[in-house]
Design a protein around this nucleic acid. Structure first.
Length: 356
DNA sequence: AGGTTAAGCGCG
DNA sequence: AAAGCGCGCTTAACCT
């Protein structure tokens, strides 16, 4: 094959072609000031030009090939025939584990092509892969920490939390929430947990800032406990210099009172998020201890093989499947009694994708 | 030859 | 000025 006259993997060369030669508009710039060619930019440009879509397809496929398809088979341990990750226990500031060499906490799942890679993670003969994950764990923790009446009620009733949020924001009955309204509510729910601003919300929803402000106002009007919680967390962070999880894990925030605006605001966003992300990390660690204890007591041959932040993956002999499927979710849900029920969902299959 | 940074993107 | 949290990996570009 004759190559292209430039390197597609070079943002610099690609930028020259797109923005100088082809004169496509510069949508945004990178921190160093060069025109960005990231996914968001190419999506925008794809509305008016044919080339960016092809670049996006190339990007996603080459990412899968270089990081997973080409790499993972080379990392199989010859003595076990398996890939073995390493977990970092004191890397992530929130208390999460991290995974490296290879990272098995970022195996693709969001696209059909990516899920084909997940299908390669298979159980040995006579075994199945069982996966159990906490449902909406961080939002449940937000409900617990804030004590917000509306959120507590929605979780107690077993409602779809994004649908329930949309129902409150848009003032329509649960059954009449539209797909778009639910999507908006989901963006708002996640955005809040990350300390997102009205500016960020507007960009994310693709609406005017005034409209985003209206959604935010409406949200805090209906979920006043959440606003109070966020104000309290910021205040505690500023006075004490740290925030805590439900179990007392601390995240120190040396820049929380910095005179540098952007740095201070970044610390405020981290302060908002850490109690939720960190409590979720504490909970799944407790779950790992509970699950292994249970496997030991019952002398089961099932093995815990992976942890992916809110998910535990086990390799389970066929004859233990029904027992494990029955017990795993309750073990995970039973590690703590919060103001909302914890829920874990379980699946099983011959490979990781099927178990999901 | 080997290390670091920038840009970009995979996951929760 | 920047505008959404936490990670790890790949490639290109640049540095010692």
């Amino acid at each position: 094959m004759a190559g292209l006259p430039f390197n597609l993997n070079s943002p610099k060369q690609l930028g020259e072609v797109l923005f100088q030669k082809l004169k496509l508009p510069v949508v945004k710039k990178t921190p160093s000031g060069t025109p960005s060619t990231d996914e968001e930019v190419l999506q925008k440009l794809a509305e008016d030009y044919p080339l960016p879509k092809l670049l996006l397809d190339y990007r996603s496929l080459s990412k899968l090939k270089s990081t997973y398809t080409d790499k993972l088979p080379r990392m199989v341990n010859p003595s076990t025939g398996r890939v073995h990750t390493n977990y970092g226990q004191a890397i992530a500031v929130t208390g999460r584990l991290s995974s490296n060499d290879p990272n098995l906490q970022n195996i693709p799942v969001r696209t059909a092509e990516g899920r084909r890679i997940r299908e390669a993670f298979i159980a040995s003969p006579g075994n199945v892969i069982v996966s159990a994950d906490y449902s909406q764990i961080e939002l449940r923790i937000m409900a617990h920490l804030s004590g917000d009446e509306g959120m507590l009620r929605a979780f107690a009733a077993g409602e779809d939390i994004h649908r329930a949020t949309a129902s409150e924001i848009f003032g329509v009955p649960l059954a009449e929430v539209s797909g778009e309204q639910r999507r908006y509510a989901k963006v708002i729910n996640f955005g809040l947990m990350y300390g997102m601003s009205v500016f960020g919300l507007a960009g994310n929803l693709g609406v005017e800032r005034a409209a985003a402000q209206m959604y935010m106002d409406k949200y805090f009007q209906r979920f006043a406990g959440v606003r109070q919680f966020m104000d309290d967390v910021r205040q505690q962070a500023k006075s004490q210099g740290f925030v805590e999880t439900v179990f007392g894990r601390r995240l120190w925030l040396p820049e929380i009172n910095s005179p540098n605006g952007p740095r201070r605001q970044a610390a405020e966003r981290a302060a908002i998020n850490a109690p939720m992300q960190g409590t979720a990390a504490d909970l799944i660690k407790l779950a790992m201890i509970a699950v292994q204890g249970w496997l030991d007591v019952h002398q089961l041959a099932s093995r815990m093989v992976m942890q992916v932040h809110d998910e535990l993956v086990l390799e389970v002999p066929d004859n233990e499947l029904s027992l494990v499927k029955q017990e795993l979710p309750s073990l995970m849900a039973g590690v703590a009694q919060l103001k909302v029920p914890l829920v874990a969902e379980v699946g099983a299959g011959s490979n990781w994708e099927e178990a999901h």
